[in-house]
Write a protein that binds this DNA or RNA. Sequence first.
DNA 1: AAATGACTATAATTCAATTACGGTCATTTG
DNA 2: CAAATGACCGTAATTGAATTATAGTCATTT
Lengths: 189, 189
Amino acid sequence: MDRRTEILEAAAKSFALFGYKATTMDQVAKIANVGKGTIYTFFANKEELFNAIVVGMIEEMRTKAEAAAIVGGTFEENAHARLMSILKFRTTHQLYAKLIDEGKEIRTPAVQEVLADIETQIVKFIAEKIQKGIDRGEVKSCNVEMVAYLLFKSYMALVVDWGKTHGQELDETEIIDLLSNTIFKSLII
Amino acid sequence: MDRRTEILEAAAKSFALFGYKATTMDQVAKIANVGKGTIYTFFANKEELFNAIVVGMIEEMRTKAEAAAIVGGTFEENAHARLMSILKFRTTHQLYAKLIDEGKEIRTPAVQEVLADIETQIVKFIAEKIQKGIDRGEVKSCNVEMVAYLLFKSYMALVVDWGKTHGQELDETEIIDLLSNTIFKSLII
DNA sequence: AAATGACTATAATTCAATTACGGTCATTTG
DNA sequence: CAAATGACCGTAATTGAATTATAGTCATTT
């Protein structure tokens, strides 16, 4: 394995375990079995190293979300499957979960920027799928950007936020029932 | 004006101006022209004084939201008017705006609890209106709690959150257009 | 009986000393 | 000699002791 990859893997491990702030460049160098200076021949600074790892994570999330769709499934089925996959990734993927926590609790600016960027990319991803649905004649013409945003925020609200104030999580069937009867119903041709 | 009221007004002024944490009981006593000990004959502690003021604020918000409805208006028109009224109150009302800021920036626990409680009460308020809509035959039978939550979160997303990531706020007509064509369309008989 | 403010115990804040860290660069290594 | 390295530097973060501020009490006053 080349040095660059070793550094990336070491950093990914450390960021996932300790978060952005608590990961030191000395530590990354040690885990990667590399002099600290070597890191700086591949990455301009700590934040760029971090961003490189996040790019990989987003790629992974996108792949998982794509894979969640069923061939021959309706727009609604696939949209639901993809969104649930993305939201599950938030808690499943150690680095992502750590970043969410760090963004809220410590509020490291670099982490908050990254999280905002991830959200933007997710919404853009959803928007692409909606546009495809429109092109295929499955979905009504609409303000794609806004509908994507509304869908994402609705899923976040029901999957992530509800449990925090209501003591227990909503069941996935309750969520799909509600959204199927509200947003999806008016969205699908 | 009786002492209790004077204390309440002084405290309301101070909380709105400086927030919960930065308001001292000495300061409230001074503004109210009252000995500090007197405050404790009416309120068990700082938090109870705070809660008493928040109760008043919620009452005011509720009154404003009720007044926003048009007599003879449809469910959709009135739901929209009420929700916009509530969300405008967030930024208009000095105390509320201060608390939102303090909840996010300083994260005073007493303030965060109060904010969570206000949200719960808003959702409950919306749920009542939906239930009335169902009883009147204007709204389809549905999971009232969940629809109320979804509506509130949708409005929050479009009115409050959108601007933060997209550079500029959405126009109110864009918001009502979108929601009219999605959630409301499937909700109304 | 109601009001008060000096008083107390505790929590928050300061600030100087110390430590930790990101990033550099002269030296070493293969 | 190009790539790798880690001692080194300036700055940022942390610590802890000293100080100050504050919520809440209660003996005294009105």
